[in-house]
Design a protein around this nucleic acid. Structure first.
Length: 472
DNA sequence: TTTTGAGTTGTTCGA
DNA sequence: GTCGAACAACTCAAA
């Protein structure tokens, strides 16, 4: 008996239910297919995700020894592979993007018509997103009751890496022929020092975090100048580690040391937000494109390519915002606290449509994830589920002073400001001329003047929300 | 059906 | 410097 194991967002061998099921049946034919069929928004990965995928596939191929790598239309390619390999079954772990759900449903049916047994599993979430609903029968729209109902009490033991035998010789495209890496310019220079895609890298990251980051996580997680967050997001997105493995690890750490109980709960609730985002995306498939609250359709967004570009490049004149945007561009990742501040700045200070920010993050984040990205952008905009109240407008100066008190984070990503004293590092435009001169900073030349003035921008944003209210 | 309590992450203003 | 209230009502989820 031979089973095709279709790898997608589960690029790991341990705690992989589709793989374990196949390995038990007999020989396996492992395959990854770069789906080139999607034309809708977000049906193709962004550039940074492609970089990650390349390295993750390389790691998986080395580990599994004989991964088929293909590109094109999965339905056609799988039929062909079934034919060539003589497989009598196929298995995969579910994806939850609306287009993927449709695609997989069709493929399952086609495979069954060809006489193959087709099985899908949950390998990527703690709960199936459609499995839970409120007592009234609808989807949850508030995080707290959602997580109260779904929070795992114990820790289920993850599946071990199974023993398996590869059925046939490797064939198909080579990894390099997928063309996933940037060429000119190579904007991913240095990323290999920053990240270690693949199952081993994911495991190392979790172990390192549980060892060093979990203590003090509840507060430390807000500090972009420190190394207190797990940075597991890209590993999780590509399924190099499963949420179940993370829950198991965190619970074990908390059992060994009682003081970690609270920290571990806080950490796991971040996984809860991931689950919540998937719950929302599955129940509201338009989430990536449409305001969940339709009254927000009346919001008077500004169009300004210049301001959008300044935001993207980290040239807004607000150091905390610029540091975040440059960290994103230079490493493919941004600290969560800074994601909120930069997103709030685009939406509220510049009054640019949240979808523009969503698209930029999609292209530049190595952890770009449809559910998380769209739910989070709508949350900041105020148009989403359990959204931030519209009057909650982050002050980029205050946020910087609070969460990067010594300016270390700003100095790392905006080195042209590094000689400024702490007092002015988050607001160079407030510094007296003599201070700027001493630090070698000429505003408007070495570093931009603010593209909007905070107090006015805040007022304008609030005025915009008046329109939303009136539209009701 | 109605009621009740609550809702990730903030800022500003005035006492 | 610190503290509490206002921001604006509304929607959600459960009892």
């Amino acid at each position: 008996m031979t089973t095709i194991v279709w790898f997608r967002q589960d690029l790991r061998l341990s705690d992989n239910p589709a793989l374990s099921w196949a390995a038990e049946r007999g020989d396996i034919v492992p395959v990854y297919i770069l789906d080139r069929t999607g034309h809708g928004p977000y049906e193709q990965m962004g550039a940074a995700s492609h970089w990650w995928l390349h390295h993750s596939l390389k790691a998986l191929d080395q580990d599994i020894g004989g991964l088929h790598i293909l590109q094109g239309d999965p339905a056609t390619l799988l039929r062909d592979l079934a034919d060539r390999s003589g497989a009598d079954a196929i298995s995969w772990n579910r994806c939850y993007e609306p287009f993927a759900i449709n695609r997989d449903r069709n493929i399952k049916q086609q495979m069954q018509e060809l006489g193959l047994e087709a099985r899908s599993f949950n390998g990527n979430l703690l709960h199936e997103p459609w499995h839970f609903h409120t007592k009234a029968g609808g989807p949850y729209k508030v995080f707290t009751p959602f997580w109260k109902a779904l929070r795992p009490n114990g820790a289920e033991k993850p599946l071990p890496r199974p023993k398996f035998k590869i059925a046939s010789q490797k064939s198909g495209d080579t990894l390099d022929s997928l063309g996933l890496l940037p060429k000119k310019p190579n904007w991913a220079k240095g990323w290999e020092d920053e990240w270690k895609p693949g199952e081993i890298g994911a495991r190392d990251r979790l172990d390192g975090f549980l060892e060093a980051g979990l203590a003090g996580y509840a507060n430390g997680r807000n500090r972009p100048d420190k190394e207190k967050v797990s940075r597991l997001s890209p590993h999780l997105h590509f399924g190099e580690i499963s949420p179940r493995q993370i829950v198991f690890g965190a619970r074990l750490a908390a059992e060994r040391k009682a003081s970690l109980e609270r920290e571990s709960d806080k950490f796991l609730s971040e996984l809860g937000w991931r689950e919540f985002s998937y719950h929302l995306l599955c129940n509201f498939p338009d989430l990536p494109e449409k305001n969940l609250r339709p009254d927000f359709d009346a919001y008077p967004w500004r169009k300004s390519d210049g301001d959008l570009a300044a935001w993207q490049k980290g040239l807004t004149g607000y150091p905390f915002v610029d540091a975040g945007m440059r960290q994103l561009w230079e490493t493919g990742w941004m600290h969560n606290r800074v994601r909120m501040v930069t997103a709030s700045f685009l939406i509220k200070h510049l009054r640019i449509d949240w979808r523009q920010g969503e698209a930029w993050f999609w292209d530049t984040l190595v952890d770009a994830d449809l559910a998380n990205n769209s739910a989070s952008w709508q949350w900041v905009a105020g148009s989403g589920a359990d959204a931030a109240p519209y009057f909650r407008i982050f002050n980029p100066i205050t946020q910087g002073r609070k969460f990067d008190p010594n300016g270390d984070y700003v100095r790392q990503w905006c080195p042209e400001l590094s000689a400024l004293p702490d007092k002015y590092i988050h607001a160079p435009f407030e510094a007296p001329d003599a201070v700027l001169e001493k630090a070698g900073v000429t505003l408007g030349k070495d570093y931009p003047l603010p593209i909007v003035e905070h107090a006015n921008a805040r007022k304008a944003a609030l005025a915009g929300y008046e329109k939303v209210k009136k539209a009701d």
